[in-house]
Simulated assay, not measured.
Amino acid sequence: MNWDKIKTKLEQILNLQFKWEVLQKNEWFFDGNTIEKNDQIYFYLYSEGSYYYALSVNQTLLTSSEKSLIEMTLNTCRMNQNQTESASGNEKPISLRTWILNQLQYDLDEKLPESLLQTPQLLKNNIPILIQTHVSDQNIGTDEELFSLLQSFYNSQIVFVPLSNKEYLLLCSLDLLEEEIEEQGKDIEHEMEESLQFFSSSLYEMLLSEWVGKCHIAIHYPIVPSESVILIIKQLREIMELGRNYCQNEYIHSPWNLYLESLLDILSDEERRLFIERVFKQVDFVLDVEMKTTLEQFFNTSCNVSETAKKLYIHRNTLIYRLDKFKQETGLDVRVFNQAVLVKVSLLLYKLTKQH
């Protein structure tokens, strides 16, 4: 039964947004197929193992007629599913998506069930990628359309798992990367990070032009999914959050590009503010849009004056004037390594404190 499609149809008919729920079996649905709790109403879909799967929505948004319509629709779907399973004589095995959502919902990290270990690609090295988008729902294609697009792009060597309607896990066979590297005459072991960066850039460009436009991608080192898929999803989400907080003009995020940001993220808000105040004597001047852009581009080009001027489309002397002005106002010369580090860290911290 395609419960995702049923959820989408109900949302279109009722103009509501339902939420997927994974619930402990011993706590829910003793007396029927709906539960009302904490202003939410939960509609039972199906059960697997020790868990119930349901859709929830704020009960104040539903009329009694709409509630009855939903119950009748879901009852019919369950009956059709039971008849199909009885006719085939087989119980549908748990899907990878269902198992992953179980693990994430209850913060578990169990081994993959035997039925999922029958998928060969889950037993070998894969490149794990997390895709997130925040465009409006009507601009997003269906999961099936995205899967078809990715299959065409990668020639089918992928595992695709929709975690929500705006978050997707993609596992790409490491063979795909090795093929690209061999064509370029490079050694994958010695250039893994550069190769993964290029791999993710190709994916981003394809999604940008063929799917929903701008989205965010987090990529990690290759893993064997059967051994660590839940752990890697959590790590990808952490990378995604770090990248979106600290690198707001970038759309591809990786752990090897966020070492400093990971270290700074453990500081409290108060510690961040104190650091910024001690480094920057005139914060308003320092964080002027033009100066902020200039400094960020200067750091992005490894403090190369000529390259920075080229990237900013300004004369080299104009850039030097701005850097001298910054030094005059703050006492910090970003052409000196130790002082450049202080300014770089302060700018990163400011991005985060500005959001809070």
Rank of each mutant, 00 (worst) to 15 (best):
L10F: 06
L10C: 08
E11L: 10
I13L: 12
L14Y: 08
Q17N: 12
Q17F: 04
Q17A: 07
V22N: 06
F29V: 08
F30V: 02
D31G: 11
T34A: 05
T34E: 10
K37A: 05
D39Q: 15
I41K: 12
Y42Q: 05
Y46S: 07
G49H: 05
L55W: 06
S56G: 01
Q59V: 11
L69E: 07
L69H: 11
M72K: 15
N75K: 15
C77H: 14
M79R: 05
M79P: 00
N82R: 15
K92D: 01
L96F: 05
L96M: 09
T98N: 04
L104C: 10
L108F: 15
E110D: 06
P113T: 00
S115K: 01
S115A: 08
S115W: 01
L116S: 02
L117H: 05
L117E: 00
Q118Y: 05
T119C: 03
Q121L: 15
L123K: 13
Q132R: 10
T133A: 12
H134K: 13
S136M: 09
N139I: 09
G141V: 10
T142W: 06
T142S: 15
E144Q: 12
L146F: 11
Q157A: 11
F160P: 02
V161E: 01
V161H: 05
L163K: 01
S164L: 08
E167Q: 15
Y168C: 08
C172N: 03
C172W: 03
D175W: 00
E179C: 02
E180M: 10
E183L: 14
Q184Y: 07
G185Y: 09
K186T: 01
I188T: 07
E189L: 11
E194M: 11
L196I: 06
F199N: 07
S200Y: 03
S201W: 01
S202I: 13
L203F: 07
L203D: 03
M206D: 06
L208C: 10
H216F: 07
I217K: 00
I223W: 11
V224D: 01
V224K: 08
P225W: 06
S226W: 01
I232F: 07
K234T: 14
Q235Y: 09
L236C: 05
R237F: 09
I239W: 04
M240Q: 15
E241D: 15
N245W: 02
N245C: 09
N249A: 12
E250C: 10
E250N: 11
N257P: 06
Y259R: 08
L267P: 01
S268I: 02
E270I: 00
E271H: 08
R273G: 00
R273F: 06
V279E: 04
K281Y: 14
V283M: 09
D288V: 00
T293L: 09
T294N: 06
F299V: 12
T301D: 02
C303K: 12
C303Q: 13
S306L: 10
E307P: 02
Y313T: 00
I314S: 08
H315Y: 11
T318R: 12
I320T: 13
Y321D: 00
R322M: 02
D324A: 06
Q328K: 15
Q328V: 03
E329L: 10
V334K: 02
N338G: 12
L342M: 12
S346N: 08
S346Y: 01
